[in-house]
Design a protein around this nucleic acid. Sequence first.
DNA 1: CGCGGCATTGAGGCATATCAATGGTCGTGG
DNA 2: CCACGACCATTGATATGCCTCAATGCCGCG
Lengths: 272, 272
Amino acid sequence: MWTGSESALVDLPAKSACTAISSSFVAGLDSLLYACGSETKSVRFRKGTDVVIAGSRPDSLYVNHDGWLYGYKILHNGGRQIVNFVLPGELFGLQSLTFTSSFYSIATVTPCTLSKVPVALIDRMTERNAKLTRALLHAAVGETAILGEHLINAGRRSAYGRVGHFLLELFVRLKRGGWTEDMSFVMPLTQELIGDALGLSPVHVNRTLRSLRDDKLIALHGRHVTLCDFAALCRLSDFEGSYLGDQTAPHDRAAPAAAAGDAQAIALRAAS
Amino acid sequence: MWTGSESALVDLPAKSACTAISSSFVAGLDSLLYACGSETKSVRFRKGTDVVIAGSRPDSLYVNHDGWLYGYKILHNGGRQIVNFVLPGELFGLQSLTFTSSFYSIATVTPCTLSKVPVALIDRMTERNAKLTRALLHAAVGETAILGEHLINAGRRSAYGRVGHFLLELFVRLKRGGWTEDMSFVMPLTQELIGDALGLSPVHVNRTLRSLRDDKLIALHGRHVTLCDFAALCRLSDFEGSYLGDQTAPHDRAAPAAAAGDAQAIALRAAS
DNA sequence: CGCGGCATTGAGGCATATCAATGGTCGTGG
DNA sequence: CCACGACCATTGATATGCCTCAATGCCGCG
């Protein structure tokens, strides 16, 4: 077992917020933030606090610069289901554009710096600015792709497959923003959180992680996760990452010069 | 057991396609269909056929007029997960706007009349028409809400709760389009399809339906489902239908004259 | 009339949940 | 610097919800 200090790991490694935002697959959003800086507030939250409460009237869309959050719902039998994690550089709260109340609570896992954009502002801008609206549309569609994959996870995969798939997805999403190092990353989640995301009990998450470790597929050192055999993990969990990346809009496909990695630049242009 | 002829049930009751479409919560789309009728093709599919194949390059967005379809994915262990059902008056294929390949196959349950709108056309229109783009955005966000609820279903509810929740959701979604009668509706699904949607085996779906029937919560007569105790069903399955309806956009909330039921008219105006 | 698809029911097995106990690590305060 | 408490990971033992296999019967259709 790894025994070094972990204090530096709870607060994620420092990175330029700018890098984190622009690497988001909804990168168009940072143009938005610049365009209306006066109405957009930067806010900080400590770890373990609720940013949005289920049932309340939502009034903002958020860009998460550097922390981890999760959206969840409590059932009346006491169970909790985590619907999605919000990683550094990703946004959340799109539902506030369409619905009059929040379905999920959103809580922080780590300390977070968030940009808070009033819905009213977004609403005003989308009336005129079709390109911004398109960027938001792509973000929403990207979210459906991720949720669909989570549904497949919970519905039809074994615990082994679920945990494997989960780690692979985190890795790919973090890699986009440069939050990985080689084949490893920092995961500030408890096994209970993982269980609530995958529909497993915390002790079974523990046993499953142990199996993955015994099978030399992953390595754990404190909060550091290393994927030792990426290909084998993909195989056992039916992971096929295209639902995460490859965010090239149809009209961009026509321009062969635009490589997949340019999605960021494209979205930037789109929201100008 | 109900023994009447079922031939009329497999082909769902005839209704004006126009009614069906405009009752969709993405009602803005029918304006689109009118606006560019020449490029939009109306197509028919027999029951049990694939409309979209997973992995292929998607080139169209579809409006489903009168049938039932489902989106699914096959895992390499042979399992199938159904991600969503497409009911009469709903649209599908939004992912083609953002991704270069389809993640799911889409198949028909019943005969279907579909309007097929080329992505290129949508793409051209969304460049200029912010209101259409907003309608699509709202459709996409609505889809995330439904998928999130399905995830909660598969992850944290018992079989009993899942089936109950599933029937309630179908009822509410069908009711929007006028496809219900009192507390009952026609459900052209096999128990195997239900199982693949909920992450259950077909035999367990059968036993669960029997329990619900024994408990006088539902009644089944052939393909007719009747909800005998709506309130009790909601309680046991944590059902709270606001994630389905209530699709009032933020800027519409400001106008108190716009009741929830006017969402249709609003979207119509929006895409004009 | 026979065949195929689907619902139904029983029996037994397995994956995962639940309950319970232990120990490690960290933060806090004396 | 040490003692304490909170939180989390870990492991064992037991319980159970759901799955799998298997057989039967119903119904519609060719």
